[in-house]
């Protein structure tokens, strides 16, 4: 019965859809899209036209090693920053003023000043204390640009991650804590079994954004002579004065960031399946 009804409805002749008019928006949209396409084609044509096998053979390995340095820097600082962020977030949420205030000052300082200034402060600034650092045997650490960069990035991302963690834990309703307490779980168990699994869903997107910001921010270590992807690019440009060196770096950075963004989207879709209605 319903089958025949469906066929009858399907057979109804509808009037043809009205023709889509060329509104101002549509013209502007097509014009802008055409501009992007022209620019994209122009870029590819430029790269093809400027293709130089010798240049590629000489600098591609450098770019690869630069990419490895960038990834290492980001992974190490994100990991160390995550370790450091937990006590900071704890102190920041504490009702004890002596704990909360220094944590607030730490977060405010590292979020309120440019990463570049922090890196300079550690790399160049701590050089002022060379005699003292040599006395304690830390000078070999602070002499290396790489270690200074890792330290600066770790301290910086720890401040941001502490805020992410704090926001996520705060977003869990009080009732969850009370429910766990009434079941006789102590604070650490509550945190591990009840609060964190819920908080991490909230924190996933900010964490992903923080990783992306770190990858983009890591380009500045090129200024303190760490040869990461940006550093290798600058070196290649200063030797060849060929603008395609910068274009290749842009393509690589864009590919990394877009891949990462899609992975984060995918993870978020997966872990929030139980929340979809």
């Amino acid at each position: 019965m319903s089958d025949t009804a469906g066929r009858i409805i399907g057979a109804i002749e509808r009037p043809p859809p009205p023709p889509r008019r060329w509104t101002g928006q549509r013209i502007a949209g097509h014009a802008l899209m055409a501009l992007w396409v022209v620019m994209g084609v122009g870029l590819v044509a430029f790269l093809v036209g400027a293709w130089d096998a010798e240049l590629f053979a000489r600098y591609a390995p450098n770019y690869m090693s630069g990419l490895v340095v960038t990834v290492q820097l980001v992974l190490i600082s994100i990991f160390l920053g995550a370790l450091l962020s937990a006590p900071i977030a704890y102190a920041r949420m504490s009702s004890n003023r002596l704990l909360a205030w220094p944590a607030y000052a730490y977060v405010y300082f590292f979020r309120g000043t440019p990463l570049l200034a922090q890196t300079f402060l550690i790399y160049y600034g701590l050089g002022s204390f060379r005699p003292q650092l040599e006395a304690v045997g830390l000078w070999t650490f602070f002499r290396e640009a790489w270690y200074c960069a890792v330290l600066a990035f770790t301290l910086n991302t720890a401040a941001y991650q502490a805020e992410i963690l704090r926001g996520a834990v705060r977003s869990i309703p009080r009732g969850q804590w009370e429910g766990a307490a009434s079941l006789g779980l102590h604070t650490f168990q509550t945190l591990r079994k009840i609060i964190l699994p819920q908080a991490l869903i909230v924190a996933l997107r900010p964490y992903g954004n923080e990783i992306i910001l770190m990858i983009k921010g890591s380009a500045i270590v090129a200024i303190i002579t760490v040869y990461d992807l940006m550093g290798e690019t600058r070196r290649a440009y200063s030797r060849t004065f060929d603008f395609q060196t910068y274009i290749w770096a842009a393509v690589i950075y864009l590919a990394i960031v877009e891949t990462l963004r899609n992975i984060i989207d995918w993870i978020e879709r997966r872990i929030t399946r139980h929340l979809k209605r």
Binding site: I215, K216, G217, S218, A219, I220, A222, M230, T233, Y246, A249, A250, Y253, L254, V257, E258, R261
Partner: peptide, 9 residues
């Protein structure tokens, strides 16, 4: 494009 590129680049 402009959210994916490092600001320095």
């Amino acid at each position: 494009i402009f959210r994916g590129l490092p600001e320095l680049l």
